[in-house]
Nucleic acid binder design. Structure first.
Lengths: 145, 145
DNA sequence: CTCATATTGAAAATGATTATCAATTTCAAA
DNA sequence: TTTGAAATTGATAATCATTTTCAATATGAG
C-alpha cells in the first residue's frame, strides 16, 4: 500500500505542523499521488482545477511547499525553465535521463558514478553534500519520428 | 597568449555580426577576461560600473549574450538562483564541484564518469546530447572555520 | 458555540531577465 | 568631411515564475 503510506507521511507532517484540514489540499495530494510523472506547477494546477474549480495558483504553490517539507516530494529545476515536482517516497536516490523531444523522464541509478563522484570530491578536499546529474538526449521513440 | 586569442575570437564574431565598436563592450570584455571566476551578472555589473560609470544593467546582459554567442563563455544556472558566466576558451569540457559555503568553483574532469554516462544512456535507448553534473559540498578551507 | 489560527483567492510585490524606445554613436560611402 | 543607415545605450516598461499580502472564510480545540 504505497499510496496509504504516503498519505500517512503527509498526515504526520500536518499534525506536527498543526495544519488544519482542507479539501483543496486533499484534492491536490490525491492528484499528486496518482500521477507518477514529474508534474510542473501548471500541470498540477490544471488538474487541480478540474477537481476543485476556483482553486488559485497560489494554493498550488503553498501546498507544494508543504509536500516538500513533509518529505513527500522534491523540487526539480529543469533546464527547460520549468520546475517539476517528483515523488520521493519509495524512490531511492536517482539521477535523471531526460528526452529533450518528448520530455520523458527516466530515473537512473548507477552506483559506480556515485563512487566516482565521491572520489573526485575527496581528491579536491571537499565533503559532498549533494549532487545533481542530468543527462539530456533523445529517446528511442523520438528518434523514430 | 591566451587573452589575445580570446579577444580575437570576439573580434571575429563582432565582424561576422557587423557589430560596431563600443567602449562599453571593450571594458566589459576586458573585465570578463581578467577574471577567472564564474562571475554573476551583478558582480560583472559592479566591476563594469567602476570602469565605465553610468553603464546600465541592460548593457551587461546584452553584452553577455554576445559573449556567449561568440563562444567565449557559457551561462551556468547555479542552484543558488544566480546565473554565472564561465570562460569557454581554453577550458576543455568539465563538470563543477562547488562549495556551498564560500562559493568556490572547481572544474573537474573525469573521463570514467563520462563513459558511464554514455553507458547509462545507451542502456535506456537514449542518444546523449548533453549533461549537467554538479557536485555540491564544503571545501577544505570552509571546514576549518 | 467561540475564538484563535489556518486556509484561501485575488491581487500586489518580487527578482531576474528581456524588450522597447528615443537619443547617441559608429563607420562606410559619397 | 559630411551624411545617413544601422548599431549601441540607458532608462523604463514588460515578462514570467514565484512569493507575499490581505481581507474573507473555514477549521477545530476547548
Amino acid at each position: 500500500m504505497k499510496a496509504k503510506k504516503e498519505e500517512e507521511i503527509f498526515a504526520d507532517y500536518a499534525s506536527r505542523k498543526n495544519l488544519k484540514h482542507s479539501g483543496r489540499r486533499d484534492a491536490i495530494l490525491k492528484i499528486f499521488l496518482k500521477s507518477e510523472k514529474h508534474l510542473t506547477v501548471d500541470e498540477l494546477f490544471q488538474l487541480a482545477r478540474k477537481a476543485s474549480p476556483g482553486i488559485g495558483y497560489a494554493t498550488i504553490y503553498r501546498t507544494l511547499k508543504h509536500f516538500c517539507a513533509s518529505g513527500l516530494c522534491r523540487e526539480f529545476k529543469c533546464e527547460d525553465g520549468f520546475t517539476r515536482y517528483e515523488h520521493l517516497y519509495g524512490h531511492e536516490h536517482h539521477d535523471h535521463l531526460i528526452c529533450t523531444q518528448c520530455g520523458k523522464f527516466v530515473e537512473v541509478v548507477h552506483p559506480s558514478i556515485e563512487k566516482l563522484q565521491a572520489q573526485i570530491a575527496e581528491r579536491e578536499g571537499f565533503i559532498l553534500t549533494k549532487h545533481k546529474l542530468e543527462l539530456y538526449g533523445v529517446c528511442k521513440n523520438c528518434r523514430k519520428k
